[in-house]
Design a protein around this nucleic acid. Structure first.
Lengths: 398, 398
DNA sequence: GAGAGTTATAGAGGAGACCATCATTAGTAC
DNA sequence: GTACTAATGATGGTCTCCTCTATAACTCTC
């Protein structure tokens, strides 16, 4: 109860709140007429008009041609200018870099990939990131100067300052000030987050868990991780270390993937990154050895999942990550195990966003950040759409 | 994004918001002068005055004599009328019923206890509840009609409708519409919640976890349970089944207390409810057998706790429940185990509220409910302080 | 193709809520 | 008893919202 967010205030504050309501109503939805807006916001028509005029003058809103073929005088239509700003999401994996460019609605404008190697030195990975970002901007016909925010998802434990503490799959990613390094690459605010958390966000914003308030996202693949959405918000925890149930020995999650990688069905020369996929495919075809491996894996998977479900009682559990392509194989054994211990069974689904999960989540994360900056009820004042200043004033690197 | 809470609106809406800010500023704090209020709310003096007059007329606020001994003209002082309404918290345990009466500030006016027996039939327990409540009202010089809300904490799994699904320690508490039954006893809204959750709330509102945003509360005693505070709010989960990590076999929490109850040090004739306390006391005095039992118990305790800590990364873990009187014995072994697996160690403390934890939490829960009803930004309008109508219109029982 | 019907726009007048300012009042300090 | 201090109470101005009415633009029907 230290300092409250002053909800009320001035007359101008009322106008600000109303402008915010109008913007929020306009976002996501397609172009809307004045009357529709007035009804949805609860404001009177004249007031709505005045607010819209103000927003148009600022550049947040633009008029679009009226819809033809309607009775009566055609209504002017307005829509949120999603192209007022741009943001980028980047997924830094062990074997790939992925970048995507989006507008303020979160709609993708361009997307690029670069291969990577887990053991590549830091400089190489950073160079690949820069290339992917530049290519992506090129595809979208934009430059660095157009970027408002860059959100980055990466493997590993990321603390609240955007520092990567350690990463099991990228050895070089260890006690690394990634946010600082990327802050020198991009002329805007850079946010760094754990990739599982961003994937969880994407699934709740536009994936299979859309509109769920409590979501447990399981990243299952070469490494295991979880992302939690609680009460509709990404849960980071006090030290931004939430979701690291992998560390609990009793779950067996650290060795878990080995059950699939080292299954007897896997042929000799197969590259290690394809081993688990092979086992899962074999299990789908009924191979008994593969099925046994899957059962062993599911045993472990179920322990950590049950812990999360029993603690949080989520509406839905989403299976994501590389192995989620085989969700059809994994879900039934997981479900039967959970049913044995869970008080209330949550919904259980495979990810629908697949490989794009993390970039999309990064974009959603960037949008959330910008929303907070511009459109939160406790934001300073409604500014015209210009790129927000980067928080840490950074002099030219010598 | 279905329907938004319209944050802005009318001029009267602005007044409502400002009145709410003033009330929130006044709550908790002692009597304040107009200038102090104006400064803290950000409103001008004249406006603050007008709001205060309105609130006084409604009965939410009252004037108190000015503070003497001050320079200049003495300022009029106002305070929130905590005695405008009353609420009751009830703790239904296996061996006891506890009731407490409080004002709108959550300050206790009276408190009573009644013994109970785990195997008592439902009617007996309900009768004991009624007695405890009546006695409590008598002590406070109030009647049923003065009660605005009654919040009840009970052992067992409680669903969102206030129905007790099952309780390990009260066999008769099984598929029981407790909220409905108590709704016939009290002429006001009755809320039923799991007792561990309420204890967690009390510790966050007025206990050792005050002001922490993410809290894991461990109820350790004859039965085990957890209560989670996430982002400052009580986490219930989609089906109100959150916190039931006891159900996970890998934690060993169900059998956990037996380690202490059946320790070899416990003398023959000791009543079973005192056994664990004896073992813990013996361990404090260095008895090796008792210490070994404590270690075994801590092994189990640590598994479930680590699961919660790794998943949620709370700021603090609070040990409550019957065994928490021996927190000094339990904390060190628990801490050393957690340090082995946790990425970031949370603070670790014993409960400071002790036996009163659940009643206090119930009162805090009731206050939260009333705040939502009266003082939330999206509440319908600022009403004068009268008891809110009971939601389910209930005819006289025939 | 003109008139009726429909729906949106534009503008004026009024009410409510906030703020700034100033003279007044009720105490303390010397 | 006078000077100083700090809060009170009242006045006028500004801003934002609402209601209401006249006007404009387009479709449908005859």
């Amino acid at each position: 109860m230290s300092t409250m967010p002053p909800m009320g205030g001035d007359l101008s504050r009322l106008r600000q709140l109303n402008a915010l309501t109008v913007i929020k109503t306009l976002r996501g939805a397609e172009a809307a007429t004045l009357s529709a807006l007035a009804e949805r916001t609860g404001l009177s028509r004249p007031s709505t008009k005045e607010v819209i005029d103000e927003l148009s003058a600022m550049g947040w809103v633009e008029e679009v041609p009226p819809a033809p073929g309607t009775m009566g005088r055609p209504a002017r239509r307005y829509r949120f200018r999603a192209d007022g700003g741009h943001l980028m999401g980047i997924d830094i994996g062990a074997y790939h870099i992925r970048a995507a460019l989006a507008d303020l609605d979160g709609d993708l404008l361009a997307e690029t990939r670069r291969p990577a190697h887990p053991d590549a030195p830091i400089e190489d990975r950073l160079a690949a990131i820069e290339q992917a970002a530049a290519a992506c901007l090129g595809l979208g016909g934009l430059t660095m100067a157009d970027l408002w925010t860059v959100a980055v998802g990466t493997t590993g434990v990321v603390n609240s300052d955007g520092r990567v503490i350690l990463s099991a799959s990228i050895p070089a990613w260890r006690d690394l000030d990634l946010e600082g390094l990327l802050g020198e690459m991009f002329p805007c605010r850079v946010l760094v987050e754990n990739d599982s958390r961003l994937a969880a966000l994407a699934e709740t914003r536009r994936g299979v868990a859309r509109d769920a308030r409590d979501v447990v996202f399981l990243h299952i693949g070469r490494r295991m991780g979880t992302g939690l959405i609680i009460d509709g918000r990404l849960h980071r925890g006090f030290g931004a270390a939430a979701g690291e149930i992998v560390m609990l020995p009793e779950t067996g999650w650290r060795e878990g993937p080995e059950d699939l990688n080292n299954a007897a069905v896997v042929p000799e020369g197969l590259p290690p990154e394809d081993a688990a996929g092979f086992t899962l495919a074999a299990a789908r075809n009924g191979d008994p050895t593969a099925l046994e491996a899957v059962e062993r894996f599911a045993d472990k998977l179920a322990v950590g999942t049950a812990a999360a479900v029993l603690l949080l009682d989520p509406e839905i559990v989403v299976l994501g990550g590389g192995f989620s392509r085989s969700a059809d194989v994994l879900l039934p054994p997981l479900r039967s195990r959970l049913e044995r211990v869970c008080l209330r069974m949550p919904k259980l689904s495979g990810s629908t966003l697949g490989d794009e999960c993390v970039v999309l989540g990064a974009i959603d994360y960037a949008i959330e950040h910008l929303d907070q900056l511009f459109f939160a009820p406790d934001a300073p004042a409604l500014r015209p759409p210009v790129r927000p200043a980067t928080t840490p004033a950074r002099p030219d690197p010598a």
